[in-house]
């Protein structure tokens, strides 16, 4: 454990914001649509594609309805935070930059055992994959580090480096607590100290109940189809500069994806249906990815390897 007073949960976020801001990242706010992981934010999925450089960092609330445990499991939440950094193209010294971020949040790399352990990242619902590692600190996975190779079935060029920190887990480690609810959310010595439990425990209880027992499955199915149908419709339109209407279309992919997760948590997806739903979401993502790349003027590869214009 670091010897100084450990960072609060929000202190951790502020340190990371400060650090990555100094590396030239735009510091974004969370995307305002429910997503299952920070990767799905359009700042990563869409901005990873195309020829343009891009550096961004943001916190993304991530929702996994099936992981809810009514706040009773010390490590599992249906709503939690990921800290996401994307740098395109990946700088040559990305590993050193990443290790610098660990130092910045108080992890001394001469005292802690940091290791890069093979982990190839893949997200079939968005047709994405990359190679990289999970980064271990004293045996605990603190980050996912990926060189993104494909998104939406399209080559990522220039290649983007993606870093994902699991904030609750990292904070629990830094603060030395065993239950997410006991995390100091703000300064525990300040005028109005709050724990993570003070802020989010009730949220876990209510959402867990709604996720597992609340939602009407037929409505969810209908809503899924309603969202699905908007995607090709929006992509078929053109904006004032002649561009495809990708960003709104992609928001509907995210909504459909979240509705699928809700149906799954309700136990409403049969084994045989599952692949078909995932395939539908992937196809929608691919359509968006292709339209995005066309808007951006190609995917950065030499002409011969360009995706169909």
């Amino acid at each position: 454990m670091p010897t100084d007073k450990p960072l609060s949960f929000q202190g951790l976020i502020l340190k990371l914001h400060d650090y990555w801001s100094r590396q030239g990242c735009v510091i974004l706010q969370p995307h305002d649509v429910e997503v299952g992981a920070g990767t799905l934010h359009p700042a990563t999925v869409l901005r990873a594609l195309g020829p343009k450089s891009w550096r961004a960092a943001y916190v993304q609330p991530s929702r996994r309805p099936g992981d809810g445990r009514y706040g009773e499991n010390p490590n599992r939440l249906q709503h939690y935070y990921q800290y996401q950094v994307i740098l395109k193209p990946n700088p040559d010294n990305l590993q050193e930059l990443y290790l610098g971020s660990l130092e910045a949040i108080g992890l001394n790399t001469r005292l802690h055992d940091i290791r890069f352990v093979e982990d190839d990242w893949e997200n079939p619902t968005v047709g994405a994959w990359g190679l990289g590692w999970e980064v271990w600190c004293d045996g605990m996975e603190v980050s996912q580090y990926t060189y993104m190779q494909q998104v939406g079935g399209l080559d990522v060029f220039p290649v983007a480096g993606e870093l994902t920190y699991g904030l609750e887990r990292l904070a629990m480690y830094i603060q030395g607590v065993d239950n997410f609810a006991d995390l100091a959310f703000n300064d525990p010595d300040g005028p109005e100290p709050k724990t993570y439990g003070d802020v989010f425990l009730e949220n876990e209880r209510q959402h867990s109940e709604a996720n597992f027992h609340g939602y009407d499955v037929e409505t969810l199915k209908r809503q899924f189809e309603d969202m699905e149908i908007q995607v090709p419709r929006l992509l078929g339109m053109t904006g004032p500069q002649g561009q495809a209407i990708v960003l709104p279309a992609y928001d509907h992919v995210l909504k459909a994806s979240h509705l699928f997760n809700l149906m799954d948590a309700r136990g409403a997806i049969a084994v045989a249906e599952r692949q078909s739903y995932i395939g539908r979401i992937r196809d929608l993502t691919k359509m968006c990815a292709l339209a995005w790349v066309k808007n951006e003027g190609g995917n950065g590869l030499p002409d011969a390897e360009q995706v169909a214009k």
Binding site: M1, R110, L111, H112, D113, C137, D138, G139, M140, Y173, G176, D178
Partner: peptide, 16 residues
Amino acid sequence: AADGGKVIAAGNAKVL
């Protein structure tokens, strides 16, 4: 590690 691995052992024990 400079501390003979005390921090590393404690951290790993927690994860385990």
